[in-house]
């Protein structure tokens, strides 16, 4: 790892100021993506501004059907929150499928979303749940937030402070983990809203990162069963294709996992 200077921030404002003063700084949250990248010398920030100890960005708030999760809340905290599980167990299940227990003890929802790895789990949920990403500058709808592989609508000095969504009437997540890395080879999050509309978020599969599948959304709005998906098509040419799985394989996974997500939803 190249040399760097560490700063601990106690508020989002202070963190933004520290980053502005740095030559080529980066925010550090759980460090479970950024530190491995720095160890490989694929990133060399001059300064690290640690967000993980900002109290105002920690924890889960449940207000009826409205859920707010602070950006530095760890995957383990989301997975093990019994209050959240009571109102929306799918998000807890998803958090419990990320990486391994040690990664979950450190990694955070804000870091995961800001990183927008095409194989990360949370982006699928954010798209499907129509989540709002709250930052130090504005509120961004998930549909506008995830731009491309590892690219988001965030500006360099903009900090995610929390995410927020309304619990749908039904939702579920199914993931096919890569056997070695545990990242999603494909993961599908499905939600059915109170007004009958459906949103399907797909991660791990799309050549431009997380996406929604409108064909499946209208099929599921008609009938909320795995069977309703049988005539849907997923374009293999729009999928990632690599040594782990080619486009056709991933396209098939999208359909299979969407069906499983619906079957497991409640």
């Amino acid at each position: 790892m190249y040399e760097t200077k560490y700063h601990k921030a106690s508020s989002a404002d202070e963190a933004a100021r520290l980053l502005a003063a740095a030559e080529d700084g980066k925010f550090l949250s759980g460090g479970q993506t950024l530190l491995p990248t720095m160890k490989q010398r694929l990133a060399a920030p001059t300064d690290l501004v640690d967000l993980s100890q900002i109290d105002a960005m920690k924890g889960i708030t449940i207000d009826g059907k409205k859920i707010t999760i602070g950006a530095v809340t760890t995957h383990a905290e989301v997975a093990s929150s019994s209050e959240l599980r009571d109102v929306c167990h799918s998000i807890c299940d998803l958090a419990g499928m990320i990486g391994d227990p040690h990664v979950r003890n450190m990694g955070t929802i804000g870091g995961s979303i800001a990183n927008n790895d095409p194989a990360a789990d949370y982006p699928a949920a954010m798209m499907s749940l129509n989540a709002e990403i709250m930052t130090t500058k504005r509120t961004i709808a998930a549909d506008d937030f995830f731009v491309d592989l590892f690219e988001t609508a965030l500006e360099d000095d903009e900090i995610i402070t929390a995410i927020s969504y309304t619990v749908p009437s039904k939702c579920g997540y199914a993931k096919f983990p890569h056997p070695a890395s545990r990242y999603a080879m494909t993961g599908v999050f499905v939600s059915k809203n109170v007004d009958g509309t459906v949103r399907v978020g797909v991660t791990g599969a799309g050549a431009s990162g997380v996406f929604r599948h409108e064909g499946m959304e209208s099929a599921l709005a008609g009938t909320w069963t795995a069977d309703a998906l049988k005539d849907c098509t997923v374009d293999a040419n729009a999928m990632l294709s690599d040594i782990h799985a080619d486009g056709a394989y991933r396209a098939n996974l999208v359909k299979v996992l969407a069906g499983r997500a619906v079957a497991s939803s409640c």
């Binding site: 479970q32 530190l35 690290l48 450190m106």
Partner: peptide, 22 residues
């Protein structure tokens, strides 16, 4: 690559990878 877990220690009671924390 932060994948093997040979470095796991407890920090404030939680198991973490000591190779992936400053």
């Amino acid at each position: 690559t932060s994948q093997c877990g040979a470095c796991v220690v407890h920090v404030d009671g939680k198991a973490i990878k000591a190779c992936t924390m400053l």
